[in-house]
């Protein structure tokens, strides 16, 4: 299979997937009880008539298939619809938020991969050595810490030492008046802690996996021979590393898909103005168009990630070209 065929097939496959994702979400949301306006009733001053009026105004009293088809027909015209609570085009609402989330998760992803692969290989060089054990312990520690708790501890640390800001994307007071240099520094400074949470809790799994794959690769006959023959360690590693490429590439593709949803609770605790708080609110408020937009974005990202990984595999490894 060639690259064009692969892309074509994936993109064609994406359409039914998006359809299914959207319908499933619509259905789950409608099953969940209440709608975008039921929350208002928590306020005793708000009457059932008012809520009924709002429901009628936005067609929420129509049956599910009608609402879904209406949403779908708008989507086909390139319109993601209006958020029920904000009365704004969803695309406008989520644009900036998506960028903020990607900034956070993208930075973390890069660090996770750099650290995970680097440290994993290091650990594999001397299995059960001191470094391996230490890294293993740290990996487990990270894997077993609920991210929310770590986030909170780091916030507490930030508050008591003053070394880092207590959440937020940037300084709310000064930002508007600063030049690009100060803004960049401020942004990085705000990124440190949330990224640290995501990296510390996320790197362990990859590290263990790379270590396992690497140990396996180092045990392969031709690699072992190369080592026995006294080839330079760098060369041996490169031989062994080739074994890691395919599984890791595939996984990297997969983890791109997690970029939009992976930082959920961390965003809440750190007051990060990302997609999470908006989407979470959308779930709570049953704001279907808003929720669907971010779920669809996540789905597209996942497929794209996998596609990129496959394309990379296709380019790098001639065998896959015939296997498909």
């Amino acid at each position: 299979m060639n690259a064009r065929g692969l892309i074509l097939r994936r993109v064609l496959g994406l359409l039914p997937l998006l359809l299914a994702v959207s319908f499933l979400s619509f259905w789950l949301l409608s099953r969940a009880g209440g709608d975008a306006f039921s929350r208002l009733l928590a306020d005793p001053q708000i009457s059932q008539e008012q809520v009924a009026g709002l429901r009628a105004l936005y067609g929420l009293d129509d049956p599910l298939p009608t609402r879904y088809l209406r949403w779908l027909s708008r989507l086909l015209q390139g319109d993601l619809g209006l958020s029920l609570r904000y009365q704004l085009p969803v695309s406008q609402l989520i644009r900036e938020r998506t960028g903020n989330t990607l900034l956070l998760t993208g930075t973390s992803l890069v660090l996770i991969w750099v650290l995970g692969v680097g440290l994993g290989v290091l650990a594999a060089l001397r299995p059960r050595g001191l470094l391996d054990r230490l890294l293993g312990l740290l990996a487990y520690l990270g894997l077993s810490t609920p991210p929310v708790l770590l986030a909170l501890l780091l916030l507490l640390f930030a508050a008591s030492t003053g070394l880092f800001p207590v959440g937020g994307l940037h300084d709310q007071l000064g930002w508007d008046g600063w030049g690009p240099g100060a803004r960049l520094r401020d942004l990085v400074w705000h990124l440190v802690l949330p990224v640290a949470v995501l990296v510390l809790t996320g790197v362990g799994g990859l590290l263990r996996q790379v270590r396992g794959l690497m140990i396996e690769a180092l045990g392969l006959p031709h690699v072992r021979n190369a080592r026995l023959l006294g080839l330079p360690e760098g060369l041996v590693l490169r031989h062994a590393g080739r074994q890691l490429r395919n599984p890791l590439l595939t996984q990297l593709g997969g983890s791109l898909g997690g970029l939009l949803g992976g930082s959920f609770l961390v965003e809440i605790v750190f007051a990060w103005p990302g997609l999470a708080s908006l989407t979470y609110e959308a779930v709570l408020q049953r704001d279907a168009p808003l929720l669907l937009a971010s779920l669809l974005a996540a789905a597209v990202l996942l497929v794209l990630g996998n596609l990129l990984a496959d394309l990379a595999l296709l380019g790098l490894d001639p065998r896959t070209r015939h296997a498909g």
């Binding site: 997937l17 499933l24 789950l28 099953r31 969940a32 929720l291 789905a299």
Partner: peptide, 22 residues
């Protein structure tokens, strides 16, 4: 397999929330 992809494509926690809610 398309069903599998569907589940994979939904961010875990949102799916969890929606399922738990419903």
């Amino acid at each position: 397999m398309r069903g599998t992809e569907l589940v994979l494509a939904l961010p875990g926690l949102y799916l969890l929330l929606a399922l738990r809610d419903s």
